[in-house]
């Protein structure tokens, strides 16, 4: 089972994200600030990190730096407001694997899809769809 770390200071935002990820069969932990995020990342093995940028104690940027020192390959998806998009662009060269909007038009499904895209590029349905298409290939 894939394990995901949610680094997010807003309890009410993190909780539904955690639960939704669980619904989709992922294990998910919450770190409620950057310092805790780095600690938890060092202690456990994670396949993907969902990282908020605006946090007390340690900003998302600093967390990203620390995580990249420990593991240059783990997936890191930034999720934050569109308003902070400029900052996200600056982070791009520090190695991020994606970006999800968390503004007032946020979609939980979009977030799940982004995670799935990284961890399960081909899920069961995808495989089925692919196989179905192959069945329908024109035969000579």
């Amino acid at each position: 089972m894939y394990r995901i770390l949610i680094v997010e200071d807003e309890k009410d935002t993190a909780a539904p994200v955690q639960e939704a990820l669980r619904l989709y069969g992922y294990e998910a932990d919450i770190a409620s600030d950057g310092v805790m995020g780095v600690e938890m990342f060092a202690k456990n093995t994670y396949d993907l990190v969902l990282l908020d940028l605006k946090m007390p104690k340690m900003t998302g940027e600093e967390v990203l730096k620390k995580i990249r020192e420990m593991d240059p390959y783990v997936y890191v998806i930034i999720y934050t407001n569109y308003g902070e998009f400029e900052e996200v662009k600056e982070l791009a060269n520090m190695g991020i694997d994606g970006y999800v909007n968390k503004g007032p038009d946020a979609e939980l499904q979009e977030l799940i899809d982004k995670v799935k895209e990284k961890l399960d590029p081909l899920d069961e349905e995808g495989v089925k769809e692919l196989m179905g298409n192959m069945d329908n290939l024109p035969t000579k």
Binding site: E10, D12, T13, P16, V17, E19, A20, L23, K54, N81, G83, K102, G103, P104, D105, A106, E107, L108, Q109
Partner: peptide, 16 residues
């Protein structure tokens, strides 16, 4: 930002 946060929370809650 401060007003966006509760909206996000409500949306996430409902969507979940």
């Amino acid at each position: 930002h401060e007003l966006g946060q509760p909206i996000t929370n409500i949306r996430y809650g409902v969507q979940l």
